[in-house]
Design a binder for these strands. Structure first.
Lengths: 106, 106
DNA sequence: TGGCTCCTTGGCCTAATGGCCAAACGAATA
DNA sequence: TATTCGTTTGGCCATTAGGCCAAGGAGCCA
């Protein structure tokens, strides 16, 4: 792997890494239903506002979500909905793991 | 989010997180072409064998790859090929980001 | 058995991550 | 202008992650 290839993989990994956190996964799934402001998400998750704000900025920095300030509040929305496809594949992994487990304990 | 929901998101996030590393991304893509043994991957990546071995065990632990010992060597192969779908979505994110960037610098 | 090769594990260090609190900041409102 | 509300940022701390090196198996083959 040369430096160029490595850089390409790093750019990709950064995006996937942004999805690799339970809270951010929840946020993405919630934003798929429609835009939400920070405190709405904060309430749903049950963490500190600052924590949620940081999670949102991670997602924003890699380009998965976008924000829009309206009056007092900031509304976040999903910019690239195809990340939702991750979920179905993740379920396949979990299922295949369950099957494997069943085989071992048979 | 209650404890049950949180656990579900954590299980999902663990799988995605396993994909969120440049070297592991490379490994997965390489395994998509066919099984590889550890030193083959080590050579391609250009890191320490122990490093590659650890990356492989991360992928194995979440159930993305499987290993098979044959004689002296251990062959790894892709267990759940749908993770390759991640790549196309990641490219969309990168493209949408590039477009966004072009708009801003116009 | 002894030595070789291939791989994994443990140890250690450094860097990055995630959480909360407190402080700052911008917009609306009094 | 002062205050309040919604959000972001900085600081701090604890935990995790990722890298290499060294040591420890597990198979082969002499």
């Amino acid at each position: 792997m040369d430096a160029k290839a490595r850089a390409r993989y790093e750019a990709r990994a950064a995006i996937i890494k942004a999805m690799g956190h339970p809270t951010r996964l929840f946020i993405v799934e919630e934003l798929a239903r429609g835009e939400r402001c920070v405190w709405e998400l904060t309430e749903m998750v049950g963490a500190d506002v600052s924590t949620i704000s940081k999670h949102l900025s991670v997602l924003k920095n890699v380009g998965i979500v976008q924000d829009e300030k309206r009056g007092n509040q900031v509304f976040y929305s999903l910019l690239v909905p195809c990340v939702l496809n991750f979920f179905s594949c993740v379920e396949s992994v979990l299922q295949s793991r369950a099957k494997e487990h069943a085989k071992l304990t048979k």
